[in-house]
Lab assay of single mutants.
Amino acid sequence: QGDIVVALYPYDGIHPDDLSFKKGEKMKVLEEHGEWWKAKSLLTKKEGFIPSNYVAKLN
C-alpha cells in the first residue's frame, strides 16, 4: 500500500509523463525511484512522476 504525500510546493511537469500538482495537493505514492516517484493525485486521479523533494509523507 502506497504512502500518502502532500505537496510542499507547486510543480509544473516538464516531461509528458510528469504529474503536475499544486501546493497542498495530496497524492498516493505508487513507486519510489530515487529522486522521482510515480504517484497518483487524489484530486485529479492522474498518474505521473513527481520530484520527491517537493512532497512530504503524511503519517
Rank of each mutant, 00 (worst) to 15 (best):
Q1N: 12
Q1S: 12
G2V: 10
D3C: 15
D3G: 11
I4K: 03
I4G: 03
I4N: 03
I4W: 08
V5W: 14
V5D: 00
V6P: 00
A7F: 01
A7D: 00
P10D: 15
Y11R: 07
Y11K: 03
D12T: 15
G13A: 14
G13H: 04
G13R: 07
I14W: 08
I14G: 09
I14H: 10
I14F: 09
H15R: 13
H15E: 07
H15D: 08
H15N: 12
P16T: 09
P16W: 08
P16I: 09
P16G: 08
D17N: 13
D17R: 14
D17P: 07
D18P: 02
D18L: 08
D18A: 11
D18G: 11
S20E: 05
S20K: 07
S20N: 06
K22W: 05
K22T: 10
K23W: 06
K23S: 07
E25Y: 02
K26P: 07
K28Y: 14
V29E: 00
V29Q: 02
L30N: 03
E31H: 08
E31P: 01
E31V: 08
E32Y: 15
E32S: 13
H33K: 11
H33Q: 09
H33D: 08
H33E: 07
G34R: 05
W36G: 03
W36E: 04
W36L: 08
W36I: 11
W37K: 13
K38E: 05
A39S: 03
K40S: 08
K40C: 12
S41T: 03
S41V: 03
S41H: 09
S41A: 04
L42A: 03
L42V: 06
L43T: 11
L43F: 09
L43S: 10
T44N: 06
K45Q: 14
E47L: 08
E47F: 07
E47P: 02
G48P: 01
F49G: 04
P51Y: 04
P51N: 06
N53H: 13
N53F: 09
N53S: 15
N53M: 10
Y54M: 10
Y54A: 08
Y54K: 07
Y54L: 12
A56K: 14
A56T: 12
A56G: 07
N59E: 13
